[in-house]
Design a protein around this nucleic acid. Sequence first.
DNA 1: TCATGAAATTGACATTAGTCAAGGAAGAGT
DNA 2: ACTCTTCCTTGACTAATGTCAATTTCATGA
Lengths: 247, 247
Amino acid sequence: MNDSSKILKILKKAPLFENCDPERVALFATQSSIISVEKGQMLFVHEEPAKRFFLILDGWIKTFRETLDGGQVIVDILPAGEIFGETSLFEGEFYPYSAEAVESSRLISMPLSLLKTEIDQDPKMISAMLTNMARIRREQDRELEHLKIQNAPQRIGCFLLRLTKQEEEGQVKIQLPYDKSLVAARLGMQPETFSRALAKLKDATGLEISGSTILLQDIKQLIHYSCSACSSEFPCKDLTEKSGCNL
Amino acid sequence: MNDSSKILKILKKAPLFENCDPERVALFATQSSIISVEKGQMLFVHEEPAKRFFLILDGWIKTFRETLDGGQVIVDILPAGEIFGETSLFEGEFYPYSAEAVESSRLISMPLSLLKTEIDQDPKMISAMLTNMARIRREQDRELEHLKIQNAPQRIGCFLLRLTKQEEEGQVKIQLPYDKSLVAARLGMQPETFSRALAKLKDATGLEISGSTILLQDIKQLIHYSCSACSSEFPCKDLTEKSGCNL
DNA sequence: TCATGAAATTGACATTAGTCAAGGAAGAGT
DNA sequence: ACTCTTCCTTGACTAATGTCAATTTCATGA
């Protein structure tokens, strides 16, 4: 099986393409390529002219911006199944953030120009784009709420809860998907604050920490602790819907 | 001129409809009505089944949610020209927030059911919807960045800057559009913090405060103070593009 | 097994924001 | 002009988070 047909097979299952005309998806496949990136490698830089967008096959991609006084703000840490760079279409064809692999990752790289022309011609694709955009908007919305009203331990608790499977109950084992300092940055706090807040969470809910593995004695305790300062009970609605993650 | 033709005239200029088939816009006009709401009046409640969405003609609409432990989180304070409630389409037809008039306001009330059917039939409309969604996503993105890295005085400074016209230079007079305590809530801080942070901003940039009027001696000073902790120079890119505000 | 470096934790302290309570200003209506 | 009421400000204090520096832990490869 060559690269193009391999890509086609993957794209057909991706949320952005699944309902689209197969011939159009094939067009994407022929103009795309699978690329591998090392940990730390940049994919593109904020405000650079945008040529391509990406679908993550595996690994983790960090999107971020730098402030004028030299700070770094994480936009998101994206898992397999997510696309990124596609919003450049609405930003004058410049990337609205930088992107870097935080683990060795494999991606499908696709031309933005094609997305731009296809979006105007295939209502199915524009519809998928809108659905995806609505999903991200909802997540941003939740995140804004959390930054405004949850404290550091509660934000960590919420992050942990979102790593569990929905059907899990009672004792749950969680594996942090990447470095603690990266989780901290993702949640908008310092590594030191993360460390101390996690300890506070341990005292408050009885969870056990060993390295990057966290064992919840009872998930309900954590839900009670974190979700009380949130506008919806766990599981958050955005989790119960289909995400971009099932390739 | 009757209500329906008055509405039609307005809708034709609204971002969501301007490029759409005029016959379809007329369909909206016939099924819509202009409503007036008093200050404090609720338009809908979070998680209620969503029947209608709204276009603001004048006044200010607050969207917000309540947390389980009784707090209130402001989602946004929307000006004339904005639509709201339309995202219910992507939330299982429940409102994703509550909405209340913070000033006496006039609105066009439209049925969501119509939006739902039309969106599937008119690519122009779905395209407008996507453009609008992308705009809001960009604003949320900026807001997330600000919450993560700007302190209270900087966030206020940024809020003030966004109230100025882009071409203004040097001395600029700003009128706060609504109560200070509401601005505070909008920016995710307590009224006391707002009051003190504004005083700090005054010391740092030499602005003058008298009631709800703020006089900047030199807008550049404020830009330097606020935008240094931001990833883009003023004027923010989202301001230079067309917003939903020009009815 | 040891050496190395990165990540994580901890302590001490500074800064920032929140809380509670009291007092003052401003506007609406009599 | 006066009295509400509501909003705003200020003070005193507490709590949360950030900063800087010093260790400690841990994974990794020599």
